[in-house]
Amino acid sequence: MNLDKYLPLTETTYYILIALIEPGHGYYIMQKVEELSSGKVRIAAGTMYGAIDNLLKQGLIQSVPGEDKRRKVYQISKEGRKVLELEISRLRNLVKIADNNELKGAN
Protein backbone atom coordinates (compact mmCIF):
# COMPACT_ATOMS: atom_id res chain seq x y z
CA MET A 1 0.00 0.00 0.00
CA ASN A 2 1.24 3.43 -0.92
CA LEU A 3 1.08 5.40 2.31
CA ASP A 4 2.56 8.59 0.84
CA LYS A 5 -0.84 9.49 -0.56
CA TYR A 6 -1.96 10.42 2.97
CA LEU A 7 0.79 13.04 3.30
CA PRO A 8 0.96 15.79 4.31
CA LEU A 9 -1.46 15.19 7.19
CA THR A 10 -3.85 17.94 8.23
CA GLU A 11 -3.23 19.32 11.69
CA THR A 12 -6.44 17.66 12.92
CA THR A 13 -5.47 14.23 11.58
CA TYR A 14 -1.96 14.54 12.99
CA TYR A 15 -3.27 15.30 16.48
CA ILE A 16 -5.86 12.51 16.33
CA LEU A 17 -3.26 9.92 15.31
CA ILE A 18 -0.93 11.04 18.10
CA ALA A 19 -3.82 10.93 20.61
CA LEU A 20 -4.76 7.40 19.53
CA ILE A 21 -1.39 5.87 20.31
CA GLU A 22 -3.32 5.18 23.51
CA PRO A 23 -6.78 3.66 22.86
CA GLY A 24 -9.77 5.93 23.57
CA HIS A 25 -13.30 6.92 22.55
CA GLY A 26 -14.33 9.99 20.61
CA TYR A 27 -14.61 12.41 23.51
CA TYR A 28 -11.30 11.19 24.93
CA ILE A 29 -9.66 12.13 21.63
CA MET A 30 -11.21 15.61 21.76
CA GLN A 31 -9.87 16.22 25.26
CA LYS A 32 -6.49 14.70 24.50
CA VAL A 33 -6.01 16.85 21.40
CA GLU A 34 -6.88 19.96 23.39
CA GLU A 35 -4.37 18.98 26.06
CA LEU A 36 -1.62 18.08 23.55
CA SER A 37 -2.01 21.42 21.78
CA SER A 38 -2.20 23.41 25.06
CA GLY A 39 -5.79 24.38 24.26
CA LYS A 40 -5.01 25.69 20.78
CA VAL A 41 -6.78 22.95 18.81
CA ARG A 42 -10.38 22.31 19.82
CA ILE A 43 -12.17 19.84 17.57
CA ALA A 44 -15.98 20.04 17.70
CA ALA A 45 -18.12 16.88 17.87
CA GLY A 46 -19.37 16.86 14.27
CA THR A 47 -15.89 17.42 12.89
CA MET A 48 -14.48 14.77 15.23
CA TYR A 49 -17.01 12.16 14.17
CA GLY A 50 -16.34 12.84 10.48
CA ALA A 51 -12.58 12.59 11.04
CA ILE A 52 -12.92 9.25 12.88
CA ASP A 53 -15.17 7.97 10.10
CA ASN A 54 -12.62 8.91 7.43
CA LEU A 55 -9.65 7.47 9.35
CA LEU A 56 -11.51 4.19 9.86
CA LYS A 57 -12.26 3.99 6.13
CA GLN A 58 -8.62 4.70 5.31
CA GLY A 59 -7.56 2.05 7.81
CA LEU A 60 -5.28 4.41 9.74
CA ILE A 61 -7.19 3.76 12.96
CA GLN A 62 -9.25 0.77 14.06
CA SER A 63 -12.08 0.01 16.42
CA VAL A 64 -10.99 -1.99 19.47
CA PRO A 65 -13.14 -3.73 22.12
CA GLY A 66 -14.16 -1.45 24.98
CA GLU A 67 -16.16 -1.67 28.20
CA ASP A 68 -18.72 1.02 27.43
CA LYS A 69 -21.48 -0.28 25.17
CA ARG A 70 -22.44 3.16 23.89
CA ARG A 71 -18.96 4.51 23.21
CA LYS A 72 -16.68 2.89 20.68
CA VAL A 73 -12.98 2.79 21.42
CA TYR A 74 -10.39 3.42 18.72
CA GLN A 75 -6.66 2.96 18.39
CA ILE A 76 -4.06 3.77 15.78
CA SER A 77 -3.46 0.87 13.33
CA LYS A 78 -0.18 -0.46 11.93
CA GLU A 79 -0.65 1.59 8.77
CA GLY A 80 -1.54 4.60 10.89
CA ARG A 81 1.74 4.30 12.77
CA LYS A 82 3.68 4.08 9.52
CA VAL A 83 1.91 7.15 8.14
CA LEU A 84 2.64 9.02 11.37
CA GLU A 85 6.34 8.04 11.15
CA LEU A 86 6.51 9.19 7.52
CA GLU A 87 4.91 12.50 8.45
CA ILE A 88 7.25 13.04 11.39
CA SER A 89 10.34 12.40 9.26
CA ARG A 90 8.91 14.75 6.62
CA LEU A 91 8.43 17.47 9.24
CA ARG A 92 11.93 16.82 10.73
CA ASN A 93 13.40 17.20 7.29
CA LEU A 94 11.60 20.50 6.73
CA VAL A 95 12.84 21.85 10.06
CA LYS A 96 16.38 20.67 9.27
CA ILE A 97 16.34 22.56 5.98
CA ALA A 98 15.34 25.71 7.83
CA ASP A 99 18.05 25.13 10.46
CA ASN A 100 20.76 24.67 7.82
CA ASN A 101 19.91 27.96 6.22
CA GLU A 102 19.65 31.60 7.21
CA LEU A 103 16.59 31.05 9.36
CA LYS A 104 18.66 29.42 12.08
CA GLY A 105 18.05 31.33 15.28
CA ALA A 106 15.98 33.96 13.49
CA ASN A 107 13.56 34.12 16.39
Binding site: G26, Y27, Y49, K69, R70, R71, K72
Partner: peptide, 10 residues
Protein backbone atom coordinates in the same frame (compact mmCIF):
# COMPACT_ATOMS: atom_id res chain seq x y z
CA UNK B 1 -25.75 5.47 19.62
CA UNK B 2 -21.99 5.96 19.48
CA UNK B 3 -22.51 9.10 17.37
CA UNK B 4 -25.08 10.55 19.79
CA UNK B 5 -22.87 9.71 22.79
CA UNK B 6 -19.94 11.68 21.30
CA UNK B 7 -22.14 14.77 20.95
CA UNK B 8 -23.59 14.35 24.45
CA UNK B 9 -20.12 14.03 25.96
CA UNK B 10 -19.12 17.29 24.35
Amino acid sequence: ENYIALFEDS
